[in-house]
Nucleic acid binder design. Sequence first.
DNA 1: TCTGGATATGTAAGCGCTGTCATTATACCG
DNA 2: CGGTATAATGACAGCGCTTACATATCCAGA
Lengths: 341, 341
Amino acid sequence: MPGGNATIYDIASDAGVSIATVSRVLRGESNVSQATKEKVLRAMEQRNYRPSSIARGLTSKTTHSLGIILPKLLNPHYAMIFTGAQEEAARQGYTVSLFPWSSLDTKAYDPAAMLLERRLDGIVVCVEYLPADHGEQVLASLRELRRVMPVVLIGCVPPWYDFPAVSNNNAAIMKEIVSYLVSLGHERIAFIGGVKEDNDPMRREIGYREGLTEAHLPYTDSYRVYAKGTPEAGKAALAGILDSLRPEYWPTAVIAMNDLMAMGCQAEARERGILMPEQLSIVGCDDLFCAPYLCPALTSINLHQQRTGARAVQLLISGENKHEIGDWELVERASCARVTK
Amino acid sequence: MPGGNATIYDIASDAGVSIATVSRVLRGESNVSQATKEKVLRAMEQRNYRPSSIARGLTSKTTHSLGIILPKLLNPHYAMIFTGAQEEAARQGYTVSLFPWSSLDTKAYDPAAMLLERRLDGIVVCVEYLPADHGEQVLASLRELRRVMPVVLIGCVPPWYDFPAVSNNNAAIMKEIVSYLVSLGHERIAFIGGVKEDNDPMRREIGYREGLTEAHLPYTDSYRVYAKGTPEAGKAALAGILDSLRPEYWPTAVIAMNDLMAMGCQAEARERGILMPEQLSIVGCDDLFCAPYLCPALTSINLHQQRTGARAVQLLISGENKHEIGDWELVERASCARVTK
DNA sequence: TCTGGATATGTAAGCGCTGTCATTATACCG
DNA sequence: CGGTATAATGACAGCGCTTACATATCCAGA
């Protein structure tokens, strides 16, 4: 490939100075005379010179490139996080490349090696919904990873792990949802949670229970199901609840772990001819772009995921060891209605 | 950061060989005796050695990292493409980082410089829906970019530009949709296209017109609207059509440029009390994950976007200068119905 | 026994930068 | 005007690899 590949030597000889001087103006050091600075700049301009970040990285030990590990980009929740992270990174002159969790399962290649060999300046890891079958093992590999490069988490890990992170107050979110539904007169509120062992889902169930307690409502196992965070799983989960109960005990409201599951719930209810929101209120979480276009439009929690991604990158670059809690808001839409006697 | 940062010198001295030998086993060259090979491997193992791709890149002139430029990841259409690209790249030992088009507008940093300085091994560029206000200018910068690194396009550019690319047969897709609707008895078929000047949208309109012609249906300007590819724009577009016509001339079917716009159309129709699909059939394009969960479930075109992304990466890595046409399929769902007299 | 050609390994010169230290030019002071 | 602090620049040694090229070793064939 031609073009753009002049080296610092070319510029130096063009400008009649040493490479050290070129390097100085490259890095904006002050101790260069105005005259030579301009000479060098002009030479760069003419050659369309671009310093090689590769060569730079070799000496400076810094690549200005970050990584992000997440379950799957196809869930817009993660696309939002990624977008926020990428934008903030770009703003600070960093590049970010993607490493999906799923890759870790394949044996065709070794993503861990990739990560390490790339000499990334840091990596943000989404651990909100850690695959249940990884569990403790993932946490261990996280610590391992951290010995080699800075890591910032999105989501919660047990606090004693002491990772910089940005997460949500999952319990508080669930409590607010419960109290919102209670304010609409609901008393039979089901909870379709994520995989039981996962980090954030666990906290959400706690919040759900606390919310019930605060409202003096009983907690019942039959109103709580665990499932993967997909529409299909959400659909099956609601089906399970309905099938296991006599209609007079059916919940009047369902809290889904995320919007994907909520979509599945809607589908199941629709199939059964259950009127929404009259007979069943549903609230999701994540506030995906499609939430307003579902039937009925889905009440959800906006988690400000882009901001989350951006903050994670900021923590990564600044090196602060903080655990930040993002804010959030309930977005009321048509999917929740006052309960009718 | 401790850990993992042993160098080839450490390994060489541990194993009692020269760095050249270490390098040989690193790259799997055959001319190393079994005995020394094992010694070296053992030394690497013990030190948990990871060769620096940075240092390697400096000499080998190859970084094993790719880039992808696309409008915005928040549209799942692009998330699919990215996912496909990333997976294929990972499979071949490459990493891919994201450069959104939108970045190009910001002046805070210079993404072009970033691209160039990174010494990427190649970049895939999504030009399906080039922002209209870029137009010719983007094409020019594409050629410029190509002088510096391999480029593969997703989407169409004028053929005389001669870029390797993978795209869809947009005209054929539209023709199939039209003939599908015609087969359901529709005669007044509206087309909500993308921005007129954009690459793929332009071809789609051609297909739409050809489809009408084939079915001996007249083409009417009032059934064709241009709009950005967002739900809001789709909603406004349908509103525009309906407002400009007396109800007896309202279209009985609408083809939307993509599912996002189709979602907007559904919303508009719903607000006006138009029954779907009885009074209005809608078909989208992209087959987003939410299509089955809309009301009614949206008939759409599955573009196999992941495969598209993967193919683009394959072309990039192999260096073939081909223009591939991806296949696609109409996914029938409830949003289209036979027209009732 | 000697030679030629594999086969195995080592030496050393980069790759394109950064950063330290030495050197030179410039300025300021008594 | 010599002398020294100061600003501007250059020389050069890496950074951790790859890759000719050189060297050493071994064995078959003459």
